[in-house]
């Protein structure tokens, strides 16, 4: 076998260097500066509503047997097709939680998918949806989380192949996925419907499971909320379209009751594939918000 000539070797090295340079440039994080954060008096009660609307606890719950089982100290394995993630501790512990995070750090995490040190978060953390949340809601949510009891919790590293390179590569994904404006229908309905549209699409991130994704792992809005493969491999996620026409629920009051009580009142569709945990969080919302969610969902034909 002939070895490549010196000229060929130089060419390969040059192409590789250029490719690495371009990759590095295209995947560069783009955080908001601290000066972008407005002065705001945080409303913790609103933050708590958003915390439940987003079902933060469903993913950030501690593993079974934790000393504080109701606090979002994270660490329960979250299985995805690309690997297993161990969600962040959301309690105010300064070492392992959000205790040292500035306001801008929290906003960058929620809307740009960036850690305080500037690294990309994998989109298993649904910032593509959260970026539709206004700054005031984000700061209220942060204030609520900081009001919780601090829990020190050290988690194992994510088990994703080529973790470092894959993480940097998320920057490329963001260039495509976040180039599109966040989906947020804002016109056409009552105030309650608009509230429902916001809760479902922004903090609620219902589409993360109920809208099928393209091969690039971006939600396919042509098939918005029409169901698809379960992200954790548990069969299929049901469609949320045509719930009235398909006689799944009778009316807004009926769906509200179902979301508030789940299978405790025999609404058995709300208990499989991880939905039980979501329903338990939705049950903690003010009734007007659950009604708003129901009104919006039942409007999807």
């Amino acid at each position: 076998m002939r070895l490549p000539s010196r000229r060929a070797t130089a060419a390969i090295a040059l192409v590789s260097a250029v490719a690495a340079f371009v990759f590095w440039g295209l995947t560069r994080p783009d955080p908001l500066p601290a000066s972008a954060i407005p002065a705001h008096t945080a409303d913790r009660a609103n933050g708590e509503v958003l915390y439940h609307a987003g079902s933060c606890f469903a993913c950030h719950k501690p593993p079974d047997g934790a000393a504080n089982p109701s606090l979002p100290s994270g660490g329960t394995p979250f299985k995805t097709p690309i690997g297993v993630f161990y969600p962040q501790n959301l309690t105010p512990d300064p070492e392992t939680g959000l205790g040292r995070w500035r306001e801008v750090d929290f906003v960058n995490a929620m809307t740009r998918g960036l850690a305080p040190d500037g690294r990309h978060y994998f989109p298993a953390f649904p910032y593509a949806a959260y970026r539709a949340m206004p700054m005031t809601d984000l700061l209220d949510l942060r204030a609520y989380l900081l009001s919780l009891e601090a829990v020190k919790a050290v988690h194992p590293p994510h088990t994703v192949p080529q973790l470092g390179l894959a993480r940097r590569g998320v920057g490329l994904w963001k260039r495509i996925a976040l180039a599109r404006a966040p989906f947020l229908p804002a016109s056409g309905g009552s105030d309650s419907w608009k509230r429902g549209a916001y809760l479902v699409n922004a903090p609620g991130h219902c589409g993360e499971c109920h809208t099928p994704k393209s091969w690039l792992m971006i939600e396919d809005l042509n098939r918005y909320m029409s169901g698809g493969p379960h992200p954790g491999g548990e069969g299929k996620v049901p469609s949320l379209r045509g719930l009235l026409a398909r006689e799944k629920y009778e009316d807004v009051s009926n769906l509200t009751l179902a979301l508030q009580n789940g299978e405790e009142l025999g609404y058995e569709d709300l208990s499989s594939g991880g939905m039980a945990a979501i329903q338990e969080n939705l049950a903690k919302l003010p009734e007007s918000d659950v009604r708003a969610i129901s009104e919006y969902l039942l409007s999807l034909k």
Binding site: E234, G235, K236, E263, E268
Partner: peptide
């Protein structure tokens, strides 16, 4: 209802 839910949450797939 809670007993139905606990079992379905753990041992039943979503409707196909």
């Amino acid at each position: 209802g809670g007993s139905c839910k606990a079992c379905h949450d753990k041992y039943r797939l979503p409707k196909q």
